[in-house]
Amino acid sequence: MLRIGLFLLTNLAVLVLVGIVFNLLGIGGILEANGVDLNMGALLTMCAIFGFGGAFISLLMSKTMARISTRTQVIDQPRTADEQWLVETVRELSQKAGIGMPDVGIFPMPQANAFATGWNRNDALVAVSSGLLERFNRDEARAVIGHEIGHVANGDMVTLALIQGVVNTFVMFFARLVGFFVDRVLMKNEEGLGIGYYVTSIIMDIIFGALAMIVVAWFSRRREYRADAAGATLASPHSMIAALQRLKAESDTGREEPLPSNMKAFGIYGNMGRLLASHPPLEDRILALQNRLR
């Protein structure tokens, strides 16, 4: 619940900022050009500019934000045998997947996890937790790395940004339509955009934004199966299954700790309610890989 609350508060702050920018740029005028007639095309265009703009700015900043939020230390020169093995494994699997060599990092988390992010397949970051390196054997860790490189090779970060851009656009568009309706029709305001418009728009941004998370999470779950398949191909199916089984065992004993909320979709696993989960249940992912072997 804490993560959901933090998301909503962050979303509210962003939407308030967008509303201020709308006013400063005079964008609100497209809603009042002809009395109650709406310039729907202009409104949709501006929402798309802000919606996609925000999504792609987040994508461009993803590596920096990931390092900060997870306290990832990028390996410039390997200092230990584990770091040397990690860098060499990422290089080997990246070449096999046909992508550029990502930055490689380790983040301080006793639980086993990993993530990949970056704005394109040739400028990514792949990081694993210290707990994963300590407890997973080499074959299992290699499969997890293959899974994350699969995300990069499949262009999942860009795909998610595109989906988020579409979702953002329609959240903002419909929130302002509802705000305009409340202001003009229910509150009978005929002089510009009144308080009913601004308050309603912000409230609907939050409501529609929460509903939109379900759509984004659905797409995120679908791509996890593809990344698992990539891990099975780059490493081995048995190693990928073994890695997921170990994750499930740790999850069942309460040892798991999800990544920060802004990174969950890029990790090897994550836990939330079914509708908002960025990852399918581990047992479903294991079963899907087992079915591929039959």
Rank of each mutant, 00 (worst) to 15 (best):
L6N: 06
T10R: 07
L15C: 12
L17C: 09
G19F: 02
V21L: 15
N23A: 12
L24A: 13
G26M: 11
I27K: 00
G28K: 10
N34R: 13
V36C: 00
A42I: 00
A48H: 03
F50C: 05
F52K: 08
T64F: 09
R67D: 01
S69N: 13
P78M: 04
Q84E: 15
W85C: 02
V87I: 05
I99C: 00
G100A: 09
F107I: 00
P108N: 13
A112C: 10
A124P: 00
L132M: 15
R135E: 09
R142Q: 14
A143M: 11
T159V: 02
A161K: 12
F170N: 12
V171S: 09
A175D: 02
A175Y: 07
L177A: 08
F181C: 03
V182M: 02
D183M: 07
V185C: 02
Y197C: 08
Y197M: 10
Y197S: 08
I202H: 01
M204R: 00
R221S: 03
R226G: 08
R226Q: 14
R226F: 04
A227G: 10
A229R: 11
A232C: 07
M240E: 11
D252P: 10
L259S: 07
L259P: 06
L276Q: 06
A277F: 05
S278D: 11
H279F: 04
R294C: 00
